[in-house]
């Protein structure tokens, strides 16, 4: 059975790109449109890795990560943050919120898959 990846992004474009890249790499992909939706999806699934955007309506990436990290069942799941900015400030905030790693947009599919492999057993 292929490993499941949850992607959380409010942009349909980004969701489709993530899905395309990850599906081609052999992963099963489940998707959510923002943090709140992401937490709902987690009620029924335990993904191997979560990839999340930061800037989203309703609940942003930072809030989403904190909620996941505060949940006994899911807190061990590696979370990669998608960030447009490669500057230290965003990464630092994501890291402090409990992100496992990050991917700088625009991402190269190989780089994305590589980052996922780096954090997943």
């Amino acid at each position: 059975m292929s490993a499941t990846i949850l992607t959380v992004d409010d942009s349909r474009t980004m969701r489709e790109m993530l899905k395309l890249a990850l599906t081609q790499a052999g992963y099963r992909v489940i998707q959510a449109e923002d943090g709140v939706h992401g937490l709902e999806v987690l009620k029924g699934e335990t993904p191997r890795v979560i990839v999340t955007d930061i800037n989203m309506p309703r609940m942003d990436g930072f809030g989403f990560i904190e909620h996941v990290r505060a949940d006994e069942t899911y807190r061990g799941i590696p979370i990669l943050v998608l960030t447009t900015e490669s500057d230290a400030e965003k990464k630092d905030r994501a890291r402090r919120a409990g992100a496992t790693g990050w991917i700088v947009k625009p991402f190269d599919p190989a780089k994305l898959v590589d980052a996922i492999r780096r954090v997943s057993a």
Partner: peptide, 19 residues
């Protein structure tokens, strides 16, 4: 204001992906 910012941000993100 956040939604406005996000709209431009998303367009930028997608545009970056397509160079």
């Amino acid at each position: 204001v956040n939604a406005v910012f996000r709209a431009v941000h998303s367009i930028k993100g997608g545009a970056g992906a397509f160079s």
